[in-house]
Nucleic acid binder design. Structure first.
Length: 272
DNA sequence: GCGACAG
DNA sequence: ATCTTGTCGC
């Protein structure tokens, strides 16, 4: 699989998604939650691009946990200039260059990768979790903190909330994609609003690469036993913030190719 | 045309 | 995501 190159604009970014989507693999029986192995969390943090001051930076971190006791096994980070503007539906092009770099820096197999965002619960069924999976070949799932407007109607109505108990879940629907010609079939289930803790807002789970929705939910529940978010996401969030803080304190070293800077593509382009 | 819109 | 004041609770 070719390395992710930064699209010149939104149209090109969408084309890239549609092309890569062909390589997305379906559910496959992987290690069940808690089975011996590793599970990895990835996340990114940004620094403000203050006019003529500091350039916009994106720091990514990958934290590997022991799948049995959730203790940390390894971690890696990467920092580089923000390669693409924030556009709903195109998040992968903004975050994945740094995330891939961080994953490449790990010394142990990542196992299942838990992303902070969506998988197939996406306008084109190719959220960042799917994108990362296709790029790396790793098994991935997406766990987002807020709902995405995928409603089959324009009411703007949020997803139906899941039941009140931990483990309760409700379907996330989206209009059919790949509809031949106005063949607007029934809405499809693309994810789940999952209650990981009683009395707390749900998280939004969707399948990524080589992992189905049921397995994605099961893993999420296992990783989010004591908190609303998966332990993987919590650790990665902390790690990328730390990495960003270190990068800001120690600006880019002289050009000697020692510290690899990534995403050097200028011309981010804009929206439509 | 206008609003909504993962992180 | 990031920026912020303030409040509640262990």
């Amino acid at each position: 699989m070719p390395a992710h190159t930064t699209p010149a604009d939104a149209a090109e970014a969408v084309e890239r998604q549609l092309a890569l989507r062909r390589f997305l693999l379906p559910d496959e029986p992987g290690p069940p939650p808690g089975a011996p192995g590793t599970v990895t969390g990835v996340d990114v943090a940004y620094s403000e691009s203050e006019g003529n001051g500091p350039p916009g930076l994106v720091a990514a971190a990958a934290v590997v946990l022991d799948a049995v006791d959730l203790t940390e096994v390894d971690r890696a980070a990467a920092v580089g200039p923000v390669p693409f503007p924030y556009v709903p539906g195109l998040l992968a092009h903004r975050e994945l260059p740094a995330v891939s770099e961080a994953l490449a820096g790990l010394r142990v197999p990542p196992g299942l990768v838990v992303c902070d965002g969506y998988g197939v619960a996406h306008p084109r069924r190719f959220g960042l979790a799917c994108h990362l999976g296709v790029l790396t070949g790793l098994r991935t799932i997406g766990v987002a903190k807020t709902p995405f407007r995928l409603a089959d109607d324009r009411s703007g109505a949020p997803p139906e909330p899941p039941g009140p108990r931990r483990g309760d879940h409700a379907p996330l629907y989206a209009p059919p994609i790949d509809a031949p010609e106005g063949t607007a079939g029934p809405p499809e289930v693309v994810g789940s609003a999952l209650r990981t803790r009683a009395g707390v807002k749900p998280v939004y789970v969707s399948a990524g690469h080589r992992v189905g929705l049921a397995a994605a939910r099961a893993h999420t529940l296992h990783l989010a036993r004591d908190f609303r978010l998966p332990e993987t996401t919590r650790r990665a969030d902390r790690a990328c913030r730390d990495a960003l803080a270190r990068a800001r304190a120690q600006p880019p070293p002289p050009r000697r190719g020692s510290e690899r800077v990534i995403g050097t593509d200028p011309h981010p382009g804009g929206r439509g």
